[in-house]
């Protein structure tokens, strides 16, 4: 055995995907218990609100309420899976399992590690959105051909909530503090983003708040691809919002977590 290697580190992209690969392997080793409950949730919402509330409200603007609801909760499942991954998941890897200490012993930089993590959150966002889409296709609720693109909006949503959650994680010292994030930020966002009812009829101040939060924009984008005659240039504003949001929270996440990873 020749122990005099002069190996160079792999390329930046390969370093990021090797982190992604690690998460994929660990996640899939417990696939059923990891993926089943979060997938059940949108189904419960669809059944509960769709059948229950849907029998009172037949139409929501130009579409049926079930279609409105189904096209709204495609990306909320992406939001929750990315948020859980990059709060509890990241925190446990950082503080309890010391997984990052092992990874940083290999030629992986803290930034590579954080980007790999966010990429994985985006992937989960894609898979979860796709799973909800498949159910809506099978039940015939959504039949618009472009609706497959909503899964890619799920990817964008996963990245957005990945970067936001990683930034939150970099500020959190105690795992119980994530309760504030989920109850105080994500739950209201779920209701006031246009996913279960439209925001257009809210008081102007609340509309303004809703437009400022990230979920509203991905819900609008996803719905536009699931329902006929919704596409238009106005969606560019939402895409632009997503891009800027990812850059800012991503930068904050990298800056904050680097301090936690390097003494």
């Amino acid at each position: 055995m020749n122990y005099n290697n002069d190996n160079r580190p792999p390329s930046g992209w390969n370093r990021i995907t090797s982190v992604w690969h690690r998460h994929e392997r660990v996640y899939n080793s417990n696939f059923i218990s990891n993926a089943f409950p979060p997938l059940l949730e949108p189904l419960i919402i669809l059944a509960g609100l769709g059948i229950g509330l849907g029998s009172y409200i037949q139409t929501m603007g130009t579409m049926s309420y079930t279609l409105f609801l189904a096209s709204g909760i495609i990306v909320t499942s992406s939001m929750y899976t990315a948020a859980f991954e990059c709060t509890y998941g990241t925190f446990i890897r950082l503080e309890f399992d010391h997984v990052y200490d092992g990874m940083l012993g290999a030629p992986i930089s803290p930034t590579n590690l954080i980007l790999g993590e966010i990429l994985f959150a985006g992937t989960k966002g894609f898979i979860f959105a796709l799973a909800v889409l498949i159910i809506t296709w099978l039940t015939g609720i959504i039949d618009y051909p472009l609706s497959i693109i909503a899964a890619f909006i799920g990817f964008i949503c996963g990245i957005m909530f990945g970067t936001l959650s990683m930034w939150i994680t970099s500020c959190v010292k105690n795992i119980n503090h994530f309760n504030f994030y989920f109850t105080g930020l994500l739950s209201p966002m779920f209701f006031f983003s246009g996913s279960v009812f439209p925001i257009e009829n809210l008081p102007p101040a609340m509309q303004w708040v809703a437009e400022a939060t990230p979920l509203t924009h991905v819900v609008r984008l996803a719905r536009a691809f699931c329902v006929a005659d919704q596409l238009g240039w106005y969606l560019m504003t939402d895409l632009l919002y997503c891009g800027i949001f990812i850059l800012i929270t991503g930068w904050l996440a990298v800056r904050g977590l680097k301090k936690r990873l390097v003494d």
Partner: peptide, 22 residues
């Protein structure tokens, strides 16, 4: 050059941090 140093080094931290599910 931390990445270059790590590419030719092997590091055993104080605490084991293997992936226990795998």
């Amino acid at each position: 050059d931390a990445l270059i140093i790590k590419a030719f080094s092997g590091i055993v931290p104080q605490q084991d941090n293997l992936d226990s599910e795998l």
